[in-house]
Design a protein around this nucleic acid. Structure first.
Lengths: 250, 250
DNA sequence: ATAAATCATGCAATATCGTGCATAGTCAAG
DNA sequence: CTTGACTATGCACGATATTGCATGATTTAT
């Protein structure tokens, strides 16, 4: 990673998180803390941030986040999103499902990375305004609960693409019963996308593991990877480690 | 390998990867790092890339800041939006164009009013999450400047509906030249919607009156109503009062 | 008050850079 | 065909930048 890229990342992270913790960032980027500290010191001298003990803060405090639904576990979702963003390669066709966790993935994508991003979530699409990526919006009747396009129109549009990677949102995962969600139409759309995608990845918080929702999306055997929080009870994640899926801890 | 070929490769690699690392590229092309560095130096001088220690990054054409659009005249837009909301009747199929003024219209719509709302703007769709209205999202390739769906997919979806009322966003209106906007694809979509709608209404701030943008949308004679700020200079709005359009002051 | 974390500084190893110079190839005028 | 100007390339070398580690100072938490 080039120095200037690292500093750009620091600026971006400051804007999105409102803070930098030197030690954490050093660990995440696999660099010494000295390097991060030097970056912070120089950037503070340039007026790009305010240096504080342990890290740095933005020069202008960030506006309070408008999203109200995102009360649950924002930093865990951010971590999941960042790990997920590392799976994306330049030039790919990436399909991103709706949901607040996937929104964090979008925020973690490098602004300048050339991508084609398809989504049936208007919220995800709106987040991509400042990104360089080409955005394909899947239309249809918006299902109110989760605000994603569903129905025949959406299925037809999905049928015309072959995504390289699909970031799936689900409300439940179970070792034997696979992934599931609460709405029939939603499940049908997710199933269609997963079936056409080379890889399917799900970002899941701890409370979803081991649960089942009414409508089946896809089995564990069709998943490529699972991104889950680090530091969970081992027995919770153990059943998934015995599958072909990659288990990525964030 | 010819120099020009090599430089073309650098440009392509920069576009696809978002970065160049001098050492890596030298090794890959079996050239000395000096040659690569010379290329990067010259190309940076020509403005084709941004030189950084260790390699190069793409030049980032500054995206037009949309934030400033919002801050322009928020209370005027709110007033326009409220007047526009009064035109909507329960049970109608309402098509809402993108833009910050139309966003105010959405905010002014009664939450409980039973409506079907179609839009090709993900931002507008996302605002409707809390409303009772059924939302039809028009898909397509998102045109980056204004973040609305365009292209064949969008036109096909529009062709299947007959909106009762269309709230059109335009950047310019002129008594003789009608309504216009800055992008060709955008204009084509707006034109298609207007052609299929029983009524077409535009919300316009004062600075847009009497101006012309490159791409024609529709003529004054096809408009149903214009919503403009109250208290403007009479001569600015006078030309429009002599048409079949309703002029509504907010 | 004491321990742990964080910090600044100096230093050494490595990477990257710019410059000058030599070599080889290209091209056009003689 | 020969010659000379020009360009592209690679190499050498000193300068500069970056990074990680060690050390002792400072801050924070308990």
């Amino acid at each position: 990673m080039l120095t200037s890229q690292r500093r750009a990342l620091i600026s971006a992270r400051l804007a999105s998180d409102g803070q930098i913790v030197a030690g954490e960032l050093a660990q995440e980027l696999e660099l010494s803390e000295d390097t991060i500290r030097r970056d912070l010191r120089d950037m503070a001298a340039a007026g790009l941030l305010k240096r504080v003990h342990g890290g740095a803060l933005p020069v202008t405090p960030p506006l309070p986040d408008i999203e109200t639904r995102q009360t649950m576990s924002p930093d865990i979702k951010k971590r999941l999103g960042r790990k997920a963003a590392e799976l994306v390669r330049a030039g790919q066709l990436v399909f991103i499902d709706g949901g607040t966790t996937n929104a964090e993935l979008v925020r973690a994508l490098p602004r300048e990375m050339p991508l084609t991003i398809a989504t049936h979530s208007p919220a995800i699409a709106a987040l991509l305004e400042k990104n360089r990526a080409e955005v394909i919006l899947i239309g249809g009747r918006l299902y109110k609960h989760s605000m994603v396009s569903t129905g025949a129109t959406a299925l037809a549009a999905i049928g015309m693409m072959r995504p390289d990677i699909f970031f799936l949102g689900a409300t439940a995962i179970h070792p034997a019963r696979g992934l599931s969600t609460g709405d029939y139409e939603e499940a049908a759309v997710k199933r269609a996308i997963a079936a056409r995608s080379a890889e399917t990845v799900a970002l899941l918080t701890e409370e979803k593991l081991g649960t089942v929702s009414p409508h089946h999306i896809t089995g564990i055997e069709d998943m490529s990877a699972l991104i889950i929080p680090a530091g969970m009870a081992p027995e919770t994640s153990a059943p998934y480690r015995q599958t072909a899926m990659r288990i990525i801890e964030a």
